[in-house]
Simulated assay, not measured.
Amino acid sequence: MNFKSIRGRIIVIIVVIFVLFGAAISFNIFSLVRSNDGLGSYRDLSEVTNQIAEIENDFFEAALAFKDYVINYDEQTKETFTQNINAVQSFFTGETTDSTLVQNIITKIEDYENNFNQIVQLNEEKNRLASQDFKDISNELRQLITDFKTLAQKNNVSTLVFYADSSMNILDNIDHLASMYFSSKSLGDKNNVLNAFNELDSQLLIMQYGLTSDELTEMFNEMKDMAEQFRNTFNQIVTAIESQQPIIGQMEQARVEILNLLEEQRMELKVQQDTLGPSLIEENNRAITLTAILTVVAFVVSIIMVIYLIRSITKPLLEFKNKINQFKEGDLTVNFESKSKDEIGQMANALSEMSK
Rank of each mutant, 00 (worst) to 15 (best):
K154F: 10
T239H: 06
Q203N: 15
V334Y: 00
A53V: 01
A287R: 09
F148C: 00
A164M: 01
N117V: 11
Q103L: 06
I137C: 06
A87D: 05
E199M: 02
L269G: 14
V238A: 07
K270I: 04
F81Y: 07
K224M: 04
R286S: 07
M1P: 05
S46K: 08
T150D: 12
T150P: 03
T146H: 00
T289E: 12
S340F: 00
S202V: 07
N192K: 01
F30W: 15
N72W: 08
E79C: 07
N123W: 02
A53Q: 04
L171F: 00
L194V: 07
S5N: 13
A254R: 14
E79Y: 07
Q118I: 15
R34Q: 15
H176V: 15
S279E: 15
Q203L: 03
D147N: 05
K341G: 06
L262G: 02
S158E: 15
K126G: 09
N221R: 11
Q229H: 04
Y209V: 12
Y42C: 08
M226I: 02
Y163D: 01
I281Q: 13
V120E: 10
K185M: 12
Q265T: 11
N84T: 14
M305Y: 03
I106W: 05
I303V: 08
V15P: 14
K185S: 15
F60S: 13
L294M: 08
Q121E: 13
D98R: 03
M180R: 09
L20C: 06
E125C: 11
Q326P: 14
L211N: 03
N335P: 06
Y308L: 10
A227Y: 00
A254L: 15
T333Y: 03
Q89A: 10
R142L: 04
G210R: 09
L318W: 03
A287C: 02
N260G: 05
N155F: 05
F27D: 05
S186R: 10
Y181T: 00
Y163R: 00
